[in-house]
């Protein structure tokens, strides 16, 4: 029973990580339909931001708190620059966008290697986040996992509220639903695109900070995450956040259960088979956005 509950929590926390790395992509790929292969490198930028901040801010807890907004701005600015300099010119050419952003991803990896060296770097986690909460029955829940779960849920809530309630959110939704109609209604669609890209990339930076608590910090960390992130958004359905949220947690629990009953490699196969089967049944993903646009 304890083990079952422990596994359930592990699944949920894997889901939280998936959600956090996919959330930014749910905006840029899901809402704007831009295939950004450099998304993983924005996650890397967030992780290295934490590392750089720790060089000057010695308190591990304080540096983590400071790193969250700073990484959001750093990765967001990189994303906005990418949008202005390259992606903007390629909106009608998805295949070119894909190749260009892949090239950018390789360049950013090499840049990280030149600046920080190719070996992994380490950050210190605050003592509080390396411990765990003991529950009755010998069950423990790791604090860093709880923190990431909280961060992921907070990010989803903030993003949902921003999209629903703020004027900017309304403009983003208008452009997603019908770009031409939004444009003729007086919305500066190119400015909306830039802002959306800033927010989406910034969320990747946030994920990068959280991942320093769990995994390696190195030049290639982003490439390992990008496929998972795309899977979540594709299965979740394009144009909706709730699809990505549900799918992230479902895949997390499926992965953890499969892994517990078999092995990690087999669990990955199970997850992929489940995804293929699901997309056969619902090629459009879990949720789709119904629009009247002709595009």
């Amino acid at each position: 029973m304890t083990v079952l509950f422990g596994q359930l929590f592990t699944g949920i926390s894997i889901g939280a990580v998936l959600l956090l790395i996919a959330l930014g992509l749910a905006l840029t790929f899901g809402q704007m339909n831009v295939i950004n292969m450099a998304h993983g490198e924005f996650i890397m930028a967030g992780a290295y931001t934490t590392y750089v901040l720790q060089q000057s801010i010695t308190g591990a807890g304080l540096s983590l708190v400071v790193a969250l907004p700073v990484a959001f701005v750093v990765a967001g600015t990189m994303g906005a620059l990418l949008e202005v300099l390259l992606i903007r010119r390629l909106y009608a050419r998805p295949l070119d966008t894909l190749l260009v952003t892949w090239g950018v991803s390789l360049m950013l990896q090499q840049l990280a290697r030149d600046v920080f060296g190719s070996p992994n770097v380490q950050t210190r986690a605050p003592e509080l986040l390396t411990g765990n909460v003991a529950l009755p029955g010998g069950l423990t829940i790791a604090n860093n996992r709880l923190f990431i779960l909280g961060l992921a849920l907070a990010a989803v809530a903030a993003l949902t509220l921003a999209l629903r309630l703020t004027p900017l959110g309304r403009r983003i939704r208008a452009v997603v639903q019908n770009r031409d109609l939004a444009a003729v209604s007086g919305i500066a669609t190119s400015r909306v695109d830039r802002t959306t890209f800033f927010v989406g990339s910034g969320l990747a930076g946030l994920a990068g900070v959280a991942l320093t608590l769990l995994g390696p910090i190195g030049p290639t960390m982003g490439t390992n995450l990008i496929i998972d992130a795309f899977l979540v958004v594709v299965v979740g359905g394009i144009g909706q956040l709730k699809g990505s949220v549900i799918v992230a947690f479902a895949l997390g629990v499926l992965q953890a259960t499969g892994e517990y009953l078999t092995t990690l490699s087999v669990a990955k196969v199970i997850v992929f088979v489940a995804i293929v089967a699901f997309l056969q049944w619902r090629p459009q993903g879990m949720f789709t956005l119904r629009t009247r646009s002709l595009a």
Binding site: T2, V3, Y260, L264
Partner: peptide, 20 residues
């Protein structure tokens, strides 16, 4: 006895198994 594919960075379940 547990194996993880090279490069994999999700060890929640394996550590749970080790612990129990």
């Amino acid at each position: 006895e547990d194996y993880a594919p090279l490069g994999s960075t999700e060890f929640g379940t394996i550590v749970n198994k080790v612990k129990s």
